[in-house]
């Protein structure tokens, strides 16, 4: 499977860190449009300590958080591309742009969680294959269709609304 972004690149794009960075790898990416990311779930995750002591289940809200983080990556990469296009000089030194401008500070906020369904518990050993498709936007808000699969089986899906950070 092709690695589009490894975890180091993800960390340059979004500000989340341990124990809350819930994205290990990006395997497909169309900046600003769509992305597929992986999250490997292991028993060493801190949340399994309490959720639950006798039965390890990844909290549904953290699956949503992982989806939101993937959305942030797709969104930020899109914003970065747009910035590059709007400034051709910068495009010549694309590599340094990412370092000069702290793109992670541009990550917006989660605004709404709609129609989220959790079809199956996610447990240690599972690999979440997360997908985010950015849909229609109005003003600073955008609708994002998200899903999570384990072994080609859908474990969660729904719609998020995210906002740009107000300028």
């Amino acid at each position: 499977m092709k690695v589009v972004m490894d975890v180091n690149e993800i960390k340059k794009t979004i500000p989340h860190r341990w124990p809350f960075l819930l994205l290990d790898r990006i395997v497909e990416l169309k900046p600003g449009v769509t992305g597929v990311g992986l999250k490997n779930v292991t028993i060493s995750e801190p949340f399994f300590e309490g959720h639950f002591p006798n039965e390890s289940i990844m909290p549904g809200v953290l699956i949503v958080e992982a989806m939101a983080q993937l959305t942030a990556v797709v969104y930020c990469k899109g914003a970065l591309e747009a910035m590059k296009e709007s400034n051709e000089e910068v495009a010549a030194t694309a590599e340094t742009v990412a370092e000069d401008i702290d793109i992670s500070s541009r990550v917006g906020y989660l605004v709404s969680i709609k129609d989220m369904k959790f079809m199956k518990p996610v447990v240690p050993g599972d690999q979440l294959r997360l997908r985010a498709d950015i849909g229609k936007s109005y003003g600073i808000l955008s609708k994002v269709k998200v899903s999570a699969h384990v072994n080609h089986e859908c474990v969660a899906s729904g719609v998020l609304v995210v906002s740009q950070r107000p300028e």
């Binding site: 709404s112 109005y138 808000l141």
Partner: peptide, 25 residues
């Protein structure tokens, strides 16, 4: 609220094929 505005925008586009632009709130 303003979050519902996005849904309303989507609904109008889906049902009537009419786009309401951001500056036309």
């Amino acid at each position: 609220d303003s979050i519902d505005a996005l849904e309303l925008f989507v609904v109008i586009e889906d049902e009537f094929n009419v786009t309401v632009y951001d500056d036309n709130i």
